[in-house]
Design a protein around this nucleic acid. Structure first.
Lengths: 130, 130
DNA sequence: CTAATACTTGCATAATGACGCAAATACGCA
DNA sequence: TGCGTATTTGCGTCATTATGCAAGTATTAG
């Protein structure tokens, strides 16, 4: 009978690069890049904690950068799928796409674990695996 | 009696910025920045899929950039806690810190959900929440 | 010790990105 | 329509960073 699970681990990085795995689709540099800026991370955390759609002006009060900068950051975060913009009269409110964001992060975590040769039967904390 | 769970949601982003939550400590820009470069993301995925400690030279064969660039990227990823370097004679092997990395991502996911006002009783896919 | 292999580091260059200011645009209201 | 408020966009500047090449360092083999 043929192998049932897990496409066998490639012998070398060169070979590994050729074989497709969930991690290839999941580990999205664009998402990471969006959250990789300290200012943006603060903005996201701020809006997330506020737990409601916030206007650009409101958010700008949280950090020391210019409002125009905040506007650009929020726009970028929205383009990255992290925030959801809503025009409401003359204000624009941004809110965190909680489920989408945490879902992406969890999918990445799963994709990474999926590559780990030792399935770590729950609670295992050992890093590296082979 | 006093409130039992969840520090009540702040009224404004300004107020939100002041109240500390898990997301503040968890959403680490440094980690995101490290994974935010496309080349580095490829390197991490490659080593992860290979599922064993890989040498710098081996990894360099996976991508089109110079070996010195790969060396720098791997070093940076190690400093970010994503890879674990091991000197082995004259080669240096890097391996993914699977548990640490997926653990961080899951912690972030949890911290984000923790902020979401609607607990989404399992399977909920709705974004935004209030 | 010398040579060869594996990796790292110095340096210059080019690209990217964050920022502030000022001007432009969008929208509601009188 | 004209005004005021809210946000976006153009532009210049400064800092960071990705990259390649060449030189330097580390480690093993002869």
């Amino acid at each position: 009978m043929t192998q049932i699970r897990k496409p066998r681990t490639p012998a070398s990085p060169r070979h590994a690069a050729a074989c497709s795995r969930p991690i290839d689709r999941t580990l999205d540099p664009a998402l990471f890049k969006a959250l990789g800026d300290p200012t943006r991370a603060v903005l996201v955390a701020c809006i997330a904690k506020c737990a409601r759609p916030c206007t650009v002006g409101e958010v700008a009060e949280c950090c020391s950068v210019d409002l125009s900068v905040v506007s650009r950051h929020l726009s970028l975060l929205a383009r990255a799928g992290i925030l959801e913009p809503t025009r409401e009269g003359r204000v624009v409110r941004y809110q965190v796409r909680y489920a989408s964001l945490s879902g992406s992060l969890r999918a990445m975590a799963a994709a990474i674990d999926e590559c780990c040769p030792t399935p770590r039967t729950r609670k295992g904390t050992r890093d590296g695996c082979c």
